[in-house]
């Protein structure tokens, strides 16, 4: 697979952010904050971490990526387009009648998705099942990645999986939580407190890594380190900024499930192109 420099990956991430804004503005509905915050995670996965081949989506040795928080699918669609799975023009069909890009991801419409998701809390269990199947097939170097939101940790199903995976010593699974502190009704610690989140996972028998989820080098390093730890299953708590890169969206839970209108999108794109005014020339 092609190797990208961190600088190049940061540029790809910025391009992905801009396409998320364009796509959501065009769709007129959808989730903004979560997808923008997860751009580094998805860029790292598709451009550095995952063993995959866009020309062979059903390659029998490919790694698997389960997106447990299906509402954040805009970041995945855009990253898939940048990785070569989807024509970028198709991004403008998001949420429209007849589109393959459903409001929440559907496996049967897109052959390179591994699961249908949206209802929260079931991704970790599915990843566990796939990892067990690979173990039975003696495909021990085939990794299963699962991205979860933090709001969905309210779901009991997550903690059922949290008990199950250490019990069965599943090592070919790497979980990452997008810890952006927001959910629909507000900040996670007000809606349903999750802290001490690290201690909770540790108590369930997991090895926990905590990182800055918007630092792409830190994200890649954490995924690589996860493969070296075999005593316990790994979960990465990736602290991210919801709405990352767009000033008026950052840290505001009201942007959880809203798309930008034309004026807001224009402002957001301008901010992203100038890296919030740090550079003066806007490259279109």
């Amino acid at each position: 697979m092609k190797q990208y420099s961190i600088e190049r990956l940061e540029i790809i991430a910025n391009d992905i952010r801009q396409d998320i804004i364009r796509m959501l503005e065009h769709a007129g509905s959808g989730h903004s904050a979560g997808p923008l915050g997860e751009v580094e995670i998805y860029t790292a996965l598709y451009f550095s971490v995952l063993k995959h081949d866009p020309s062979k989506p059903d390659w029998s040795e490919r790694d698997i990526l389960i997106q447990s928080n299906g509402h954040c699918v805009p970041v995945r669609y855009v990253t898939l387009a940048h990785a070569g799975y989807i024509d970028k023009k198709e991004l403008m069909t998001l949420r429209q009648f007849g589109s393959r890009l459903q409001g929440h991801p559907e496996r049967l419409r897109l052959p390179f998705l591994e699961s249908t998701s949206g209802p929260l809390g079931s991704g970790l269990s599915q990843a566990a099942g796939i990892a067990l199947a690979f173990r039975l097939n003696a495909q021990l170097k085939r990794y299963v990645y699962v991205v979860m939101g933090d709001g969905e940790l309210d779901e009991g199903n997550v903690w059922e999986a949290a008990m199950f995976i250490p019990k069965h010593k599943i090592h070919n699974l790497i979980a990452i939580i997008d810890r952006n502190n927001i959910q629909i009704d507000g900040f996670t610690e007000n809606v349903m407190p999750l802290e001490d989140l690290k201690a909770k996972w540790q108590a369930f028998g997991w090895h926990v890594l905590e990182i800055d989820g918007n630092n792409i080098e830190a994200v890649i390093d954490a995924f690589e380190m996860s493969k070296a730890i075999i005593e316990k299953p790994i979960i990465i708590i990736a602290h991210t900024i919801p709405g990352k890169g767009v000033d008026f969206m950052e840290e505001d839970f009201k942007w959880h499930g809203v798309a930008p209108n034309h004026e807001q999108a224009k402002l957001a794109l301008s901010e992203l192109r100038t890296l919030k005014g740090k550079i003066t020339s806007e490259h279109l």
Binding site: E114, S115, S122, Q126, G129, A133, N137, A161
Partner: peptide, 17 residues
């Protein structure tokens, strides 16, 4: 844990079982 029961099942099926 019946929710885990069927979702692990879904994963096993995704893995070809």
């Amino acid at each position: 844990a019946e929710q885990n029961l069927v979702t692990v099942g879904s994963g096993l099926a995704a893995g070809g079982k």
